[in-house]
Amino acid sequence: DRLHAMPQEEFDTAVVSIGVNDVTGLNRASTWTENVRLIVQLLTEKFGVRRVYLSSIPPMHLFPALPNPLRWWLGLRAKQFNVLMKSVADREASCTYAPIPYSPELSGIAADGFHPGAEAYRVWGDYVAELIQGGVAE
């Protein structure tokens, strides 16, 4: 909705980071996949984006704020959604899937135990910047 409301403007590159709310909101995988595809279409058609980077969902199976078995189940859904996101990227010529190399260490998670912390954001930003600059193999 926000992209639809924005005025048309040209961009070379877009980084899309979505999915955690879809995982926890129990959105259907098919609906989510179609929404990712529609976001890519909107970015390329309305905004002239030549390269869309689809950032992987964080490793929710590591979020300590989530009790098991919920942590395990949401982590599994996040992994499944990442596979679906990669399939969209593989089908769309303008897309690159960005599997962020998050550390399994809890030091990358914020104090609330649910959100990425400063270290995770640093890893994410560095990785995507390298992808954009062409320094990381897809």
Rank of each mutant, 00 (worst) to 15 (best):
I100A: 02
V36H: 03
A78L: 12
M85Y: 07
M60E: 00
A98F: 08
D1M: 08
D12H: 06
R51P: 00
A78C: 09
Y121I: 00
L43N: 01
V83T: 13
E92M: 13
E119A: 09
I39F: 05
S55W: 04
A29H: 04
N27V: 13
G48V: 06
F47A: 08
N82K: 01
L74M: 13
A78M: 12
G125K: 00
A65S: 15
L106S: 11
Q80L: 14
V20E: 00
L26M: 12
E9A: 15
K46H: 07
A118R: 01
S56G: 14
I100T: 09
G48M: 09
A14M: 01
P64V: 10
Q133D: 12
P59F: 03
E45I: 09
M85R: 09
V88K: 08
L106F: 07
E9R: 15
T96Q: 10
R91K: 13
L38W: 02
I39W: 06
F11T: 00
R28Q: 07
A98C: 14
V23N: 06
D112H: 11
E34S: 10
L3N: 01
F11C: 05
L3C: 01
P116Y: 00
A89C: 07
L76D: 05
A93Y: 05
Y102D: 00
A93G: 11
E45Q: 14
E130Y: 13
V16G: 06
H115P: 09
A98S: 15
A89W: 12
L26D: 11
P99D: 05
Q8V: 14
T24C: 07
R2A: 08
R28H: 06
T31G: 05
P67Y: 10
D126P: 00
D90W: 10
G117D: 00
M6W: 09
I100P: 03
R50E: 10
N35R: 13
D90F: 12
R77P: 07
G25F: 15
C95A: 11
I100N: 02
D22T: 08
S87P: 02
E9V: 14
I132S: 05
Q8E: 13
R51A: 01
S87D: 04
M6Y: 05
A5L: 09
L70Y: 13
D1C: 06
R122H: 07
Q80M: 11
Y53W: 03
Q8G: 09
P99R: 00
D112K: 06
M6K: 10
V15W: 03
Q80C: 09
A110H: 15
G19W: 14
D126G: 03
D112P: 13
G75C: 10
V36A: 03
M85C: 08
F47W: 10
P7L: 00
T24V: 14
S17F: 15
E45V: 11
D112G: 10
K46C: 13
K46E: 02
K86A: 15
I132P: 06
L66W: 12
Y102W: 15
T44I: 06
V49I: 10
G125I: 05
D90E: 12
G117A: 03
L84Y: 11
Y121H: 14
G108E: 06
A129E: 11
G48C: 08
G117P: 09
G125W: 05
